[in-house]
Amino acid sequence: SAVVMEEGSPGEVPVLVEPPGLEDVEAALGMDRRTDAYSRSSSVSSQEEKSLHAEELVGRGIPIERVVSSEGGRPSVDLSFQPSQPLSKSSSSPELQTLQDILGDPGDKADVGRLSPEVKARSQSGTLDGESAAWSASGEDSRGQPEGPLPSSSPRSPSGLRPRGYTISDSAPSRRGKRVERDALKSRATASNAEKVPGINPSFVFLQLYHSPFFGDESNKPILLPNESQSFERSVQLLDQIPSYDTHKIAVLYVGEGQSNSELAILSNEHGSYRYTEFLTGLGRLIELKDCQPDKVYLGGLDVCGEDGQFTYCWHDDIMQAVFHIATLMPTKDVDKHRCDKKRHLGNDFVSIVYNDSGEDFKLGTIKGQFNFVHVIVTPLDYECNLVSLQCRKDMEGLVDTSVAKIVSDRNLPFVARQMALHANMASQVHHSRSNPTDIYPSKWIARLRHIKRLRQRICEEAAYSNPSLPLVHPPSHSKAPAQTPAEPTPGYEVGQRKRLISSVEDFTEFV
């Protein structure tokens, strides 16, 4: 048969007729292969192709491409040299491709048809291009793949890379869960390890502090508590009631339409708007009261037996805890006409967050109470924005700035309102402590230090009264110190430094 060459192609190359033996071998191979691939376009007849790359030819070592076609129900084999250009295909004639002069020997084609199974398996396991790669995943090629499931790999992101949580363990979102698992493993320790309690022994800490320079003076030496005195035992138990972190309780009120001037209507609300609910979820963490331990979680007086509701929101960081007394989460009882059960919590909070959804101005004093010092007013606006402002009593104007209003988005509203309420509550605590000038409020841990110092002074006084020969370590507060001759004046800087060093040991009130 003659071949018409394309323009620009090399000279004529004689194409030899395939021997009958080659056709029989390739026909047997075509019957084993699956003929249901995917359909081509209507211009080209339905056909199945599979590209198999052999590394070497037997005796020649030339890479070839073998295409199996099922045109007219008769499979045909096409061998081509890759750099050459194939002729145009037609549905009426068999596929013809040019070969190099080196394939002119018909014996070479017979060798190609009689490829060993080793070469076929190696060509099938190679990388296939384009559409033949999808075909190689079918059941027909499963014989050339190794048996057994593939090893499982770690989760992959859409980009093909490992997620960040699997790369950096410290930033993994499941870090707290692993800590819980470690605690569970520790709890399952053997009885021999049960006595080993991690941490620092208080006796060891005391020993280090006792021999430090801070205890060089007799006034700073630790003293032993009497065991037989019940009054001192009660004082030590009272110390446990003062937490070592700051605590805040903040009221949250929802004002519906037409309720801006009605205290009873505001306290009777059992739910609010959708934006109000989203605002609550951002204030803190939802907790169930019956599962809380009052000595570990500050509840601000809420009952854990269901008297004040089942849930509330709280927030904490390293040095403070805040609980929100939310009116809509507290039960509304029919027998309580004046809502006294709610007001006994909300009316005693220094700061209230008022979500004013009424469309009218909310005035300070609508919720009557002796300790309502500051109101954080949240007014929802259009386009997911809110107006946040402050209202306070006249005696609080020096501590709280009420002249600045803020426009905040719904997303950042819980954070801004919480921070403003916490700052206002700190100012309210300082303002409330002014009624007792001898006990200015600095912080909870300073209050613990003052309680310890008062307890020490009482013990020293009782020891001096029981044994008059012992001198008083600290003179009583009601006694007057003996007159001392004025010492020589020293520079102001040295006096300030000495006073600062003494105050650092005794108390921190002056620095606050």
Rank of each mutant, 00 (worst) to 15 (best):
N386G: 05
K342H: 05
Q230H: 11
S433I: 07
V473M: 13
L449K: 11
T281M: 10
A417F: 00
D291R: 14
A464M: 12
N261I: 03
Q237N: 10
I242D: 06
L449Q: 13
E510W: 05
P294H: 05
S273L: 01
T312V: 14
H345V: 11
L253S: 01
I440N: 09
I250K: 00
N386W: 00
Q259G: 02
I377Q: 06
P437A: 07
Q230G: 09
G369H: 08
D334L: 09
Q497M: 10
L299N: 14
E288K: 11
A405V: 15
P475I: 13
H345K: 12
A327Q: 04
F311A: 06
K343Q: 11
V388N: 00
A405T: 15
S433C: 09
T332G: 07
H338V: 11
V323D: 08
A251Q: 06
G300N: 15
K499M: 12
S219H: 12
T509Q: 11
P468N: 11
H325W: 04
E233G: 07
I326K: 03
Y313L: 11
D439V: 07
K363M: 09
H248A: 15
N220Y: 12
D395Q: 14
C292T: 09
K363W: 06
P380V: 01
G306C: 08
N386K: 01
I367S: 03
T379L: 03
S358C: 03
V252N: 00
I287P: 10
V304H: 07
E233W: 13
Q457Y: 08
Y493F: 13
T247P: 04
L239N: 09
F311N: 04
L299A: 15
P414K: 00
I446G: 11
V495P: 14
V335K: 12
P476V: 10
P442C: 06
F371V: 07
E510F: 06
K290F: 05
V473H: 15
I367E: 03
C460N: 10
R418C: 08
L299R: 14
G258Y: 08
T438S: 12
G301T: 06
T277A: 07
T328Q: 02
Y441K: 11
A405S: 11
A424R: 00
T277V: 08
L225H: 11
L399P: 03
L472Y: 14
N356Q: 01
P380G: 01
L264W: 11
V323S: 05
E461P: 13
R234M: 09
P331Q: 06
N220T: 13
A481Y: 09
V354H: 00
L472I: 12
G284D: 03
Y383F: 11
Q293C: 14
V404M: 13
K406T: 12
V236S: 07
V404P: 14
L449H: 08
R434N: 11
C340H: 15
H271G: 15
V351I: 02
L472K: 15
Y254S: 00
H345L: 12
